[in-house]
Write a protein that binds this DNA or RNA. Sequence first.
DNA 1: CGCCCATCCTACGCGCGGGTAACCAGGTCA
DNA 2: TGACCTGGTTACCCGCGCGTAGGATGGGCG
Lengths: 206, 206
Amino acid sequence: MTATPDAKPRGTRLPRMARRRQLLSAAQEVFVENGYHAAAMDEIAERAGVSKPVLYQHFPGKLELYLALLDLHVDDMVTRCHEALASTTDNKQRVQAAIGAFFDFVSSQGEAFRLVFESDLRNVAPVRQRMERSLRESAEAISQVIQEDTGCSSDEAHLLGVGLVGMAEVSARYWLSSHGSIPKEAATQLMARLAWRGISGFPRTG
Amino acid sequence: MTATPDAKPRGTRLPRMARRRQLLSAAQEVFVENGYHAAAMDEIAERAGVSKPVLYQHFPGKLELYLALLDLHVDDMVTRCHEALASTTDNKQRVQAAIGAFFDFVSSQGEAFRLVFESDLRNVAPVRQRMERSLRESAEAISQVIQEDTGCSSDEAHLLGVGLVGMAEVSARYWLSSHGSIPKEAATQLMARLAWRGISGFPRTG
DNA sequence: CGCCCATCCTACGCGCGGGTAACCAGGTCA
DNA sequence: TGACCTGGTTACCCGCGCGTAGGATGGGCG
């Protein structure tokens, strides 16, 4: 339950950077479990085995703490997407890899994807910007490839990229929530096939 | 700016049901603009040209007021989706109609779609249930059609349905936010083509 | 005419939670 | 050994915003 497996007995003194990492870890747990609003600074401090002022010696406020975490995971998501697209030059494989990136992302880091995809606080500008950055940069990367290989306009390619990201994101979240009804590999292949061939590409029975 | 165009001079007495509708309308404005948390009951009352206790004579609390609105728009979305699928028996047309339903939904009712797709309050169970209902019932309707026409298992069809809904939802929201760079008709056709033929169905330049 | 009920108002209670002031402890180094 | 710096603690302040108590007002009906 504690942030780090080592159960320090509270009262342990830690070097500054180690403490900071531990606070980020505890904060991530609480923010992911409860969302921003229902998360209390008191609880984050408590979960880190520390008192509240320590938190404020590392972060100027609740929002900044949240943003630090959000940035971390937005970067993670965008990086995964870029790496997937760079992993091959075959477009069919690219689709598979990019969709796999979303499925990997949602199943990593103890549901931290909720910060990126399901944040309460969309209304607060700096948070909204970061959530949009995740969508924009993923879609942008995809639309680059689309534009290189098709006759689409920039606007059209962007919309297609956003659509594909949306498909991947929402299906990955759904897959995770229906824990185990379909193995990850099968799910990504199914969605990759949908993205590549469309819904008309599935076998007809009648 | 007021909820109803008739600018009643505050102090006007209204029959119960008329007042209720007006309060819902004012609440929708405020919740959509600010989200649940940043919305103050005082402001909702004020925007309706009424004092706070009136609000509490119609709704037991802030949450219930919010849920009443949320239910309204979740029903709206689900209905649009069902009607789109029932509007034809040609599956290609069905895809077009269903995607059109999402684009119509996001451009209706003064951005009320934000309640359904972007609610802060996902963490609160009754809200989460309603947001999931919107996704589930839309995807369910689509997966019905998929199962009838393909050899997919139920689990696979559901995942495909969710993916298509995600594609439509996210792209519709993006299209709305990029106000006017692509006309609605063109955008829906583009996304319908993506859903039907897949990304491989777009013309190659090289 | 005067009773009554529905509608609406002003003014307040109060809990919750972010942020802070003021103080303690223990290791290091001149 | 004692000054000092780093890291930690307890106990508090206070603003915000939901929800309410108690009172005014005005139209219909006996």
